[in-house]
């Protein structure tokens, strides 16, 4: 592990040495999500003129042809198929009280993934899909699921599947708290931390397409559109929560708990700046 990280840091140093600044990294006084989102897209489409906008959602596969072919081959019979089926069954199965997930969501939970996370004005906080699913369970007398894999991954896989192709559509209501949540998420994304002193942006904005140890880095644009993912490295499925916590550990940072406010805000920010790009989950990843 230590060796891995050492290599990690060394290759990162090379990769980042020459790189210029990321888009509007530290937006100052005014918070302008619309301008942010436009600048964000422009940054990536300028940097990767050959990648079509909707292909960014394919993460590392959008960055390399050799990888892209391996992905197409896997998509012929994708490894997330079992989770998807399990999720569909779980979603349809009523709780002990006779209610079901469908009762907790708009449009019975079908084709709505692109609207998550959303800002709840009553609560004054960001609500992610994973959080909404566990709240639904608890409201119906069921124990919550672990946020990182298994059942949660299966359920979100199915819900994402029913939204495939729909453009991400995150709203920021006219509520100062919503804007603040967005801004906090953005700050989290650009703040350096951990022993390696990396921010999320160091890897996913400045260096997408670069290899870090063996892995090709995904671009931050559309980075959540394929969630949840089956990762060969994990030999299984993982949720957005799992990805956030594992990325924090990679830089020897201390991961937060899944669904802590910081992560919810971060998901809000990353999803908002990817508005318009299609939902492609569940995804398969190296």
């Amino acid at each position: 592990m230590i060796l891995r990280l050492a290599i990690h840091a060394a290759s990162a140093a090379v990769a980042f040495g020459l790189l210029a600044f990321a888009p509007a990294a530290h937006a100052a006084d005014s918070v302008d999500p619309v301008a942010d989102a436009n600048a964000f897209k422009k940054f990536f489409t300028d940097k990767f003129p050959k990648v079509t906008l909707k292909d960014f959602v394919n993460g590392p596969y959008s960055m390399s042809e050799d990888l892209h072919r391996q992905w197409e081959e896997k998509e012929e019979f994708p490894p997330y198929e079992f989770a998807l089926e399990a999720g569909k069954e779980m979603f349809a199965k009523p709780f002990k009280n006779g209610k079901s997930y469908a009762d907790c969501f708009p449009n019975k939970g079908i084709g709505i993934r692109q609207n998550y996370p959303y800002f709840d004005e009553k609560e004054g906080k960001v609500i992610t899909l994973e959080l909404a699913l566990n709240r639904c369970r608890e409201a119906n007398g069921e124990a919550p699921f672990s946020y990182v894999k298994d059942e949660m991954a299966a359920l979100t896989a199915y819900m994402a599947y029913t939204s495939r192709g729909k453009p991400m559509d995150i709203k920021i209501p006219n509520d100062p708290r919503a804007l603040e949540a967005y801004q906090k998420g953005k700050e989290y994304f650009y703040t350096r931390r951990g022993q390696l002193n990396f921010s999320c942006a160091t890897c996913h904005v400045q260096s997408p397409g670069e290899r870090i140890r063996a892995e090709v880095l995904a671009p931050a644009l559309g980075i959540l559109n394929a969630m949840p993912i089956y990762r060969s490295e994990w030999s299984g499925m993982g949720t957005t929560s799992r990805r956030f916590t594992t990325c924090n550990s990679q830089i020897r940072g201390v991961p937060l708990n899944p669904q802590d406010d910081e992560y919810r805000n971060l998901e809000y920010y990353l999803s908002y700046v990817s508005n318009g790009l299609p939902i492609s989950g569940p995804g398969a990843r190296p």
Binding site: P60, D66, L67, R69, Q70, W71, E73, K74, P79, A214, S232, E233, S235, P286
Partner: peptide
Amino acid sequence: APEIAENGAVVP
């Protein structure tokens, strides 16, 4: 077969 396997656990 790929030039570089994305992950040795799954090489198509």
